[in-house]
Design a protein around this nucleic acid. Structure first.
Lengths: 201, 201
DNA sequence: CATGCAATGTTGACGGAGTCAACATTGTGG
DNA sequence: CCACAATGTTGACTCCGTCAACATTGCATG
């Protein structure tokens, strides 16, 4: 084919895709610019024509990975249309599941900046990354609307909900908590405790 | 002094201390075996007489760092003797504060294994790392005792409490949530919401 | 169509890193 | 006192990120 061509035409996209695979396979520590270049059948310096440095490439890889994350959350919404409570539970479960299946991303998503768009600006605080939590917050907001008390929605509730999911995912991935049978049941239990409180106050 | 001596007598301890400082100053990414060796005024291979590899040295550094973490939590207990509720709140605040002041440790503590001693073994799940959460769980257990319903203590409550704190710390450190004024007030608010539920059920 | 420049890719080099092997020094127990 | 284990040094190897110099390609402009 055109494998031997000097100009690749879409090397940039290739680097991102191969980089994504490499990251999943060997993890962040073993990830290297030169390995990605080799996977693309290109010299060790070719990537530098498309990314200013390693961090830049990784950032692009993460943007793609985040899309997968968002799809996971959105699927919980789409399979529970008209049932906002079920949507919330589904998002919680899928949030944890995603990181259990892709543990490498847990740190990468939250350590680097990605796109730092402000999502919600409250009088108390602001959520700084629409990519990562926009869906969850919209969903909670929607639930309050469903309950007929839209104006009672307090962003701090979203923050607490989100924090709990995230901590839980962290501990499960790193085996700080080991569930003796399927962990999903306990994730659901915690989510239900959280949801219960949403109604209360 | 005895700087020039061939045998250092306590190089191992020195490597851990200098390594701790280096880790705090330059972060995990920039941390290197050779830099630590240089800080100790020793050849680049001397550390290998005391640690089998880089991971081994870092593990030792973390064991020391965890002691600082535990001290932070214990201070909340000691300054609130006889007031278990205040102890819990204090632990929550100090937990978040510790990682805000030492953001490097957030990932290091929870990604590597440290000492994987099982702390609580329940019929549902087990907490696998006494170092990291033993104090918090004891404190919650103690609070239930104080309330006169010791047998109602459900480990899943500890898991939820702990997860929330951890997620919160993660988001604050990585600026996913930016508090417009002092973040501590909001941490307290979330902790109080958590504590409130401890009494309920 | 020619040509010249920007975009893209290659080669080579550099220093920093982890770690292995061979060697040097020291401290200690018999 | 001496042999051996413990500890430290030197040098080498490979991998890595990245810079500089050079090569090739494709496209726009005349």
């Amino acid at each position: 084919m055109d494998k031997k061509k000097y100009h690749n035409k879409n090397l940039k996209e290739n680097l991102i895709n191969q980089g994504l695979h490499l990251l999943n396979e060997v993890g962040y520590e073993q990830f290297s610019m030169r390995k990605v270049a080799k996977l693309c059948g290109v010299s060790h310096n070719a990537p530098y024509r498309h990314f200013v440095d390693k961090e830049d490439l990784i950032k692009s890889i993460l943007e793609k990975a985040v899309k997968g994350f968002q799809d996971t959350l959105l699927s919980a919404i789409n399979t529970n249309k008209g049932k906002p409570l079920e949507q919330i539970k589904g998002i919680g479960i899928n949030y944890v599941n995603f990181f259990v299946r892709n543990p490498e991303y847990l740190n990468l998503f939250f350590n680097s900046e990605l796109k730092g768009e402000v999502y919600v600006k409250d009088k108390q605080f602001s959520f700084e990354d629409a990519y990562l939590f926009g869906i969850l917050i919209d969903c909670l907001d929607n639930y309050y609307d469903f309950l007929g008390k839209k104006n009672e929605f307090n962003p701090i509730i979203a923050l607490e909900f989100w924090s709990t999911l995230h901590g839980l995912a962290t501990f499960i991935i790193n085996k700080k908590v080991v569930f003796l049978d399927n962990y999903k049941d306990y994730v659901i239990e915690i989510i239900e405790r959280l949801v219960l409180r949403l109604e209360d106050k």
